[in-house]
Write a protein that binds this DNA or RNA. Structure first.
Lengths: 346, 346
DNA sequence: CAATTTAATGAACGCGTGTTTATTGTATCA
DNA sequence: TGATACAATAAACACGCGTTCATTAAATTG
C-alpha cells in the first residue's frame, strides 16, 4: 500500500498562502497575524499534518532525539533495574519533547561496536547520548565529547575537569555505606562484615572503600575474615556465606551486602544452615531492589534513588543541548536507609 | 563547539570523482569498476564518513528504524519481563541493521497519547512499529495498518483476517494450561485450583478458559471454591490464599497461578499459615520469571518463550517491511513445563 | 498629502543524499 | 575504418523544510 503524506506545500496551497508562511506558523514566528495563523492551523489540523523531521533536520533543526547506550556488562543486567532505568529515561525525555533511540553496546573494546555508536551520532544526528555502564574517561566517550557532542554518563566517579558538554552523574556509595554502618552501630553491633561486589569494577571498589571509611568513622575494627568476595550476583552472596561457614570461622553479628541480590543469596545460605535473619544475624542490602520489600524477611537496605538520578541526568542533558547556561554538570544520587525486618538490636 | 561532518561532496572531491560515483559506491551499484570503488572506499574510511540518514530518508530511502511502543497497563510492568523484552527486540533489530525508537503510551484512550504515536510514524518516518500490550483491533492500530504502515503486535488472540502488513504474535495459553493440568493430574492430583489474572484482560480470560478446557480434557471437575480472583500482581496471590483460608474452606491439593508473581504471593501466604509447599500443597506458576528458579521452593512453572517469540516477531516485521514475499504473519509463542520443587506426587 | 517606517508575505537558496538522464570515452563489430 | 554498442561518470533534479532576502501593502509621521 502507498503512504501518501501531506507536505507543507500542500498545506500552503490549501490555505492559500506561501510555504514560507506555513513554516513560520509552525515555528511560531511572531510576525504572522492571528487571522492568517488560524487559517493555516485549521488546515494543518484538518489534514493531521506534521512536518517531516528528516527535512527539518536537514534544514538545520535539532533532531530532538537522544541516544541511550546500554553497555552490557556480561549480561545486559537482567534485573528489573535496567527496565526501570530505560523507562525512566524515555519518560523524562518524552516530557521534554525528546525521543530516545536505544542501543546496546556489547563490548566497549570491540571497534565494530564503537563504530556502531559513532554511526548513530553521525548518521542519525542525535542531539546527545546517555551512557549507562561506561566510564566517563572511556576513550570513545572522550572522542564524542571532543567532537562537540553532548553526553550524559552514569559513572562511579567524577572526571577532573568536566567540559560543558559532559554531564556526569555518580553514586553516593560513601554516604550509603555510612548510613548502613551507623545504623548497625546504633543497634549495638560491633562485629560487622561485608560481602563485596566485583572489585575490578569501580562500583565494587567505592562501596568497599566507603565501608572501610564508615567503620573507621564509627570507631569499629574491620575483621579481614568478614570481608567476603562477591560479584553483585545473587549466587555470590550464597557462596560467600557457605564458604565462611564451611571454614568454621565465627560469624559477625551483622552483614552489609554490596547489593540486594547478594543479600538475598546470603540470607538463602544462612537459612539453609539453620540460621535465622535477623535473630542470629542482621543483614543490610544496597539499592532497594523491587524484591526487597517482598522478600522474607523484608530486607533493610540502602535505597538508591536511581529513578530520580536518571531524571535529573536526562533533564540536565537536554538543558545542555539547548544551550541553557550555567547548569550543573555533576549530579550525585541520593540514598537513604530503608528500615525493614532484616536487622535487630543487640 | 562546532561539529563539522564530512559529506559526500567532500568525499567526491578528495577522491577526484563526482558525488554520483560516491553514492553509487555506497549503495553497491554494479557499474562502478573495482579501481574506482576502492579509491572511494579508501577516502571514506580515512574520513570515517557515514551518510546522513536524514538526507537519505528525504531522498527516498528507508529509515531502518522501528518504533517500539510500550502500552502502560497501570504501571509500565515493573518486572524484569519488560526489560528483557526491550533488550531482546533492540538486539534482534540491531542484527538486521535496524534501530529502535522506544516510546511509552500511557493511555490508549487519550487522544493526545495516540497523536504522539501517529506523529512518530509520520514525523520520523519509521518503517514499522511493534506494540506491546495493545490489542490488534485497537482503533489506532487499525488506522496505522490502513495507512499502509507495517506493524507487529503482541496480542492475546489472532485477528480474523490479518493484512500483509500486520504481523500478530500470540500466546499459547491453552497449551500451557494443558501442560500444567496434565502434569498435576499425572502426579495424582484431582483437587486442582487456580488463581486467575485480571479477567477484564484477554490474557486473564484465555488462561482461565485454557484451565477449564484442560480440566475437562483430563476428566477433572472444577470446584468453584478453588477458582480464585487475582490480578497478575504478587499481592493478589497472597490475598487470594488468605481469603480462602480465612473462610475455612478445604484446600485443593494443587494450585495453578496465572503467573509466577501470583504464585510467589500464594506461597508466601501459605507459609504464613504454617503450610508447606509442596508437602501440603503443590503450586505451578506461569511465565518462568527470573526469580522462579531462585525462589524457595524453586517454582515449577510453565515457561513462556517470550524472548524467542519477540525475536521472531521482530524478524518477521523487518521481512515484511523489506517486502519479502510469503512470510508468516502469525506467530504463536512456545511454552514448556519446567519442573522444579514446588509440586509433589500424591 | 507626500515621505518614511513597519508589517506581511512570497521567491529563492541551501541542507545531503539517491536516482535518472545526458555525455563522454572506449571497445566491438562488420 | 566507420558505425555501433557499451561502460563509466558527470550533471541535473527531487525530496521537504527553515530561513534570508526582496517585495508589496499598510500604517505612521512630518
Amino acid at each position: 500500500m502507498k503512504k501518501t503524506i501531506a507536505n507543507s506545500s500542500e498545506i500552503a496551497r490549501l490555505a492559500g498562502v506561501s510555504r514560507s508562511t506555513v513554516s513560520r506558523v509552525i515555528n511560531n514566528y511572531s510576525n504572522v497575524p492571528a487571522r492568517t495563523r488560524e487559517k493555516v492551523l485549521e488546515i494543518i489540523r484538518q489534514h493531521n499534518y506534521v512536518p517531516n523531521v528528516s527535512a527539518q533536520i536537514l534544514a538545520g533543526k535539532r533532531t530532538r532525539t537522544l541516544g541511550l547506550f546500554l553497555i552490557s556488562q556480561g549480561s545486559v543486567s537482567s534485573d528489573a533495574l535496567t527496565n526501570m532505568l530505560i523507562v525512566s529515561i524515555i519518560e523524562n525525555a518524552s516530557k521534554h519533547g525528546y525521543y530516545v533511540l536505544t542501543h546496546i553496546i556489547w563490548d566497549t573494546q570491540n571497534s565494530e561496536d564503537i563504530k556502531g555508536v559513532m554511526d548513530i551520532f553521525y548518521q542519525h544526528r542525535i542531539d546527545g547520548g546517555i551512557f549507562i555502564g561506561a566510564a566517563s574517561r572511556e576513550p570513545f566517550i572522550e572522542d564524542l565529547v571532543k567532537a562537540g557532542f553532548t553526553v550524559g554518563i552514569v559513572d562511579q566517579e567524577l572526571p577532573e575537569r568536566p567540559e560543558p558538554n559532559r554531564i556526569v552523574s555518580t553514586f553516593n556509595n560513601d554516604a550509603g555505606m555510612k548510613m548502613a554502618v551507623a545504623y548497625l552501630s546504633g543497634l549495638g553491633h560491633t562485629s560487622i562484615g561485608t560481602i563485596n561486589g566485583n572489585m575490578n569494577r569501580l562500583s565494587g571498589q567505592t562501596k568497599y572503600e566507603g565501608f572501610l571509611a564508615a567503620m573507621r568513622m564509627c570507631g569499629l575494627k574491620v575483621n579481614p575474615d568478614w570481608v567476603l568476595e562477591g560479584d553483585f550476583q545473587e549466587n555470590s552472596g550464597y557462596e560467600a556465606i557457605q564458604t565462611l561457614i564451611g571454614r568454621g570461622i565465627m560469624l559477625p553479628t551483622a552483614l552489609i551486602a554490596a547489593n540486594d541480590s547478594v543479600a538475598f543469596g546470603a540470607i538463602r545460605a544462612l537459612k539453609e544452615n539453620g540460621l535465622r535473619v535477623p535473630e542470629d544475624l542482621s543483614v543490610i542490602g544496597f539499592d532497594d531492589h523491587a524484591m526487597a520489600a517482598k522478600h522474607h524477611p523484608a530486607l533493610t537496605t540502602i535505597r538508591v534513588e536511581f529513578e530520580d538520578m536518571l531524571k535529573r541526568l536526562t533533564s540536565r542533558l537536554i538543558a545542555a543541548i539547548e544551550d541553557e547556561p550555567a547548569i550543573a554538570r555533576e549530579i550525585k544520587s541520593d540514598c537513604s536507609l530503608v528500615v525493614r525486618d532484616s536487622c535487630r538490636r543487640i
